[in-house]
Amino acid sequence: MMIRFLCNGKAVEVETPPMARLLDVLREDLRLTGSKEGCGEGECGACTVRIDGMTVMSCLVPVYQVDGTKVQTIEGLADDVVHPVQAAMLAHGGAQCGICTPGLCMSAAALLESDPKPSREAVRVALAGNLCRCTGYQKVIDAVAGSLVEDR
C-alpha cells in the first residue's frame, strides 16, 4: 500500500504493508534512525514521535494511520537552529547515553507548546512515558522546566 504523509515538513511516499509499524517505516524505509526501539511494546517511549502535534509511541502506530498526516521526528524537531528543549537539555546535562533522548525531547517539546512554563510536576507527568535509565530524570526535569520557550 502506498502511504503518503508529511514527514518533518517534506512530502514522503512509502510503499509498505499497511500494518507495518511507523517506527520501522521511519527507521528502515526513510532511514530516520533518531527514533529508537527500546521495547517494541509502548513502554519505554524511545520511539516517541508526533503525529499532527500529538506524541505517540511509533512502535504502536500502524503506518496506514499516518496517511495524510504530519509526522515529526527528532530529526525535524528544529529547522535550522536547535529547539529550546535541545538547548536546555545540552546545558543542563539532560542527555547521557542518549538513547531515550530523542523521545524525551519530543515529549518535552509537545508539553512546552501547550504549557510554556511548566511546573516540575507537569514535566514529570509529561515525561512519564519516556523511560530513562541514566539520569534519574533530575537534570531532564531541570532542563524542561527551565526551557522557557519564548512567548511568540
Partner: peptide, 26 residues
C-alpha cells in the same frame, strides 16, 4: 477492530494475534 492500536500492536509484535483483516475505526 483497531482504533488507537495500543493493545493490538502489542499483541501483533508479541506474535499473539494473527489477524485476517483489520477494520480501522479511527
Amino acid at each position: 477492530m483497531l482504533a488507537g492500536g495500543t493493545d493490538i500492536m502489542v499483541y501483533l509484535e508479541a506474535g499473539q494475534l494473527q489477524p485476517t483483516a483489520i477494520i480501522d475505526l479511527s
